[in-house]
Design a protein around this nucleic acid. Structure first.
Lengths: 106, 106
DNA sequence: TTATCATATTAGCAACAGCTAATATGTGTG
DNA sequence: CACACATATTAGCTGTTGCTAATATGATAA
């Protein structure tokens, strides 16, 4: 199965559209954390978090740095950090409109 | 049901994570189009496109401007346009890494 | 008014994404 | 080595998302 540019783009963008993954990103936005720290921080389940980390890593959004028996996860680079900041900025501006989206295709 | 800031953010971001919606956004990125023009342009089905437009509109990403029996859809503002450009820029930089994400949580 | 065109909405279904529980891998420590 | 800890992977289930088909609404034109 070949991946078009469009499919790649969608896969990348979809990675941001999940509550747990957004929480993970906010959690490691300023400093890298181990898996267990992330699990504790967002009160998730280890298996679940691990799967989401794999997704984010696979999409090039975060990187894992093994150190001993731990793996430290952090944003891939400054550009991702800026993208996250941009999300927040844009959101602040249109926050009122989003609230009224009740279509089930959301 | 109350919507937290986090839920709002996720809803907003999720709107970008769908193939049809990405196509719609690319289609109206530079100029507004009617629903039928969009349907024809991305070879979609009218009902389906209409639902996706409702989603994007409800999330504050696009706006619809009725004119006679047509409705012209365009990006909500310049900030959204810039966000779309940013997506493309970030993607170009990490394109190679995204290709190898095969986790089913994607 | 009736007919036609453009768009929106609804219902039902099929596919997929994400969750939990269990297990596997891998690393350090006694 | 055996054990404990940290993380990753797998399988199966459940809920959600997006699709199609049908119908409704709304606007213009004959």
């Amino acid at each position: 199965m070949i991946q078009t540019d469009l499919d790649l783009k969608v896969k990348f963008l979809r990675a941001f559209g999940d509550k747990t993954r957004v929480q993970i990103l906010e959690c490691i936005k300023y400093e890298e954390k181990t898996v267990s720290q992330i699990v504790e921080s967002i009160e998730g389940n280890q298996s679940n978090i691990s799967q989401h980390l794999a997704c984010l890593r696979g999409c090039g959004i975060i990187v894992g740095r093994p150190e001993g028996k731990y793996v430290y996860y952090g944003l891939r680079n400054q550009q991702i950090k800026e993208l996250l900041d941009t999300f927040d900025n844009v959101l602040n501006q249109i926050e009122d409109n989003v609230a009224c989206c009740d279509n089930h295709i959301s």
